[in-house]
Simulated scan of single mutants.
Amino acid sequence: MSQHQESKVKIGIAPIGWTNDDMPELGQEITFEQCISEMALAGFTGTEVGNKYPRDPQVLKKALELRNLEIASAWFSAFLTTKPFQETEVAFIKHRDFLYEMGAKVIVVSEQGHSIQGKMDAPLFDAKPVFTDEEWKRLTVGLNKLGSLAQEKGMNIVFHHHMGTGVQTTEEVDRLMEMTDPELVHLLFDTGHLFFSGADPLVVLERYRPRIKHVHLKDVRLDVAEKVKQEKLSFLQAVKEGVFTVPGDGDFDFAPVFKRLSETDYEGWMLVEAEQDPAKANPLEYAIMAREYIKKASGI
């Protein structure tokens, strides 16, 4: 990647490899300080917000500045398909203002109406939610409104397509992109969630590159993904089995992704997000492995 672009792209890592928000028992003994110290030690300059992070912006800023880290974004659960818009709006504004304080430029939004990602026994592929036309309308109209609210603060929303939700497949991403305003709703491109869903991430990258303003780098172990389908495992069981891992450790080829992002002058964060059981996959060891692989494969 060119020198110019290198300065425009930042490399971060999510805390989910240390402690899991959906399954707090994974990594529950790991403190916030250990987590962010190891991120810095592994060579990352940014992070997303986990459930152990202090919510007081001054406290959080100080802890991060000591380690030369910044907040890239944080996950927001929307319930646009199942609850009155007002409820999502109130929670979103609070979330937006916190991230604005922290200097983040994008807000990760995921639609959690009907989601099965947090259900331990719901088979991931068989019980996947499918939205009705009416729900699609509520979702996309609502997202346009959230996009406007974000832009009041000079920020953008990036939609996170996600396993176990109503926006998981390429077709569903297409529908979401088609029904939302390209000026208001942007896309979070997550290699792992697309690859696991059976999609070709490069197709989505190619199709929506101008709307992609945030990237999650996640690898997939295909043998585990196959087992998840065969044994009808849930999303959480899949994570525990090790379906996800850091870039370079699974079966996805990241080279074309880095190449395409480079050619199109991507600006923004690329974050490693690879939830595993920290008892099986030492977070620091895997973070270092990820950082070295990204440097080798992308030059950043």
Rank of each mutant, 00 (worst) to 15 (best):
A42F: 13
F85P: 06
E273S: 08
K128P: 00
A199W: 03
Q34I: 08
L217Q: 04
K105T: 03
A74E: 06
S7A: 14
T132M: 08
V215M: 10
I36C: 12
D126T: 09
D21Y: 03
Q117F: 09
P201T: 04
K153H: 13
L194D: 00
H95Y: 02
M155G: 14
M270Q: 14
G113S: 01
G50I: 04
A72R: 06
G103F: 02
E206H: 14
F196H: 12
M120F: 12
W18E: 02
K61S: 04
H160Q: 14
Q58P: 00
E183Q: 15
F244V: 01
R221D: 08
F98Y: 09
M270L: 15
F125G: 10
R211E: 13
G299L: 07
E87F: 09
G198V: 07
L149R: 14
V158W: 12
G27Q: 03
S2H: 11
K145G: 00
D174H: 15
G27Y: 04
V106S: 08
T45Y: 01
I16S: 10
S37R: 15
Y208M: 08
D22E: 10
L202K: 14
D181V: 10
Y286N: 11
K280L: 14
S73L: 05
T165Q: 11
L64N: 04
P201F: 02
K213H: 14
L64A: 05
A199V: 01
P57D: 07
A225T: 07
L143C: 02
E231M: 07
M289L: 14
F196R: 11
